[in-house]
Amino acid sequence: MKLAKKVRTAVFPVAGLGTRFLPATKAMPKEMLPVVDKPLIQYAVDEARQAGIEHFVFVTGRNKGVIEDHFDKQVELEITLHQRNKHDMLKMLDEGLPRPGQTSFTRQQEPLGLGHAVWCARDIVGNEPFALLLPDMLMRAEPGVLSQMMQSYNQNGGNVIAVEEIDPEEVSSYGIVGRGDGPDEGFDITQMVEKPAKEDAPSNLIISGRYILQPEIFELISTQAKGAGGEIQITDAMVALMNSQKFTGVKYKGQSFDCGSKIGFLTANVAFALDRPDIAEGFQRELLALDIAELKGPIKDA
């Protein structure tokens, strides 16, 4: 059996304007919005690093320079922390940084869709398989979702997509896959449909913002027409790639939060705060003290 080529590179599309979070995102990228005390983009990078990724490619836009700064050393801060004997903080900051030479940044000059953002990374990725992580989708899983996908990729090769179940009534809002043979950890994907009507959906399994893709996707993106919303859609290119390559679905163990929405973002903050041993007890106590009857019930039951 031919071994799958190692996935060393991850692409992070971070060029979006984040208009749903204005005015907070007027001067700050939405990917830098914090969940508890860590920005969204850091969670995605940490997930990729856990999965063995060695090269982190950020597809940025205007006013996104702070993302590049975040993944760089801040000498003045480190000197101050050292002088104040804040060694735990220094260690934490160091552990969050990719090593020198592991990051690349490229621009998406126009907002032409996710497919176009991925295509903008083509020359950096080269002729190699790569992971694609959408930072808006924050994953709560151990091991991380991309690590779970890597296990399937190492067995099956080809292309891998993370999926999760949703209420069948909501399928018209998502990209949906058809499920073929195989276990939850790696089953054949038989089709992909973007935002189908309930009666036309092949399943209730949605594409969840984590992908492992082969480099042939770049050529397909470069020649495809604009799709839904007048944008170049990654799903359209994947459907075309299915004609010649295998696609595997991984129904991952974990929970996702759509932090592109205000409700998803706020829910993620609550969930991740309650996961933190250093603040969970105090945070839950403050939540229960709020004079909101609807909130008190579910928190007490948790």
Rank of each mutant, 00 (worst) to 15 (best):
R20L: 04
E110G: 00
H87K: 03
P29D: 01
R49L: 00
G52F: 07
L77I: 09
E47D: 13
H55G: 00
L22P: 07
H82M: 06
A117C: 03
L114D: 10
A24K: 15
P39D: 05
E68N: 03
G52A: 01
N127R: 10
H87A: 02
I53L: 01
D88A: 11
I41H: 09
I53G: 01
V57D: 10
V45G: 01
L22A: 06
H82S: 09
Y43A: 00
E47L: 02
E95I: 04
D72Q: 10
Q109R: 11
G18H: 12
V35I: 15
L93G: 04
Q83D: 15
V57P: 08
T60P: 00
G101P: 13
V57N: 08
G101M: 07
V36K: 14
I79R: 11
D72F: 08
K38T: 11
R84S: 09
D94F: 02
R107P: 07
I67S: 10
E54N: 07
D69Y: 04
L93D: 05
V75Q: 11
A48H: 10
G115Q: 11
R84Y: 13
E110M: 07
A24Y: 15
A117N: 06
V118W: 03
D94A: 13
P111W: 15
K73S: 04
D37N: 15
R107C: 02
T80G: 05
A24R: 15
D123R: 11
Y43D: 03
G96R: 15
D37Q: 13
E78A: 03
G61R: 08
L17I: 05
D69C: 02
A48R: 11
M92H: 13
F21H: 06
K64H: 09
V59C: 05
E54H: 08
T25G: 02
S104Q: 12
R62A: 05
K30M: 07
E95H: 08
S104R: 11
T19F: 12
A51P: 06
E68Q: 10
T19H: 08
H87M: 03
E31P: 09
G96C: 11
A51C: 09
R122E: 13
Q83M: 07
K91P: 04
D123A: 01
A44V: 06
M32F: 14
V36D: 05
A117V: 04
V45M: 11
L77R: 10
I67D: 06
G126D: 09
L114M: 13
I67Y: 09
K86P: 06
T80V: 06
T80K: 14
G61Y: 10
P111D: 01
D46A: 14
R62C: 00
M92K: 14
A44N: 11
A117P: 06
M92W: 12
I67H: 05
D72R: 12
R99M: 05
K64S: 07
E47R: 02
K26H: 13
P39C: 08
R107G: 01
D72I: 03
M92P: 03
R99P: 00
A27I: 04
V35Y: 15
V57Q: 07
R62T: 01
R20W: 05
T80H: 13
G61E: 03
T60V: 04
N85K: 14
R122G: 06
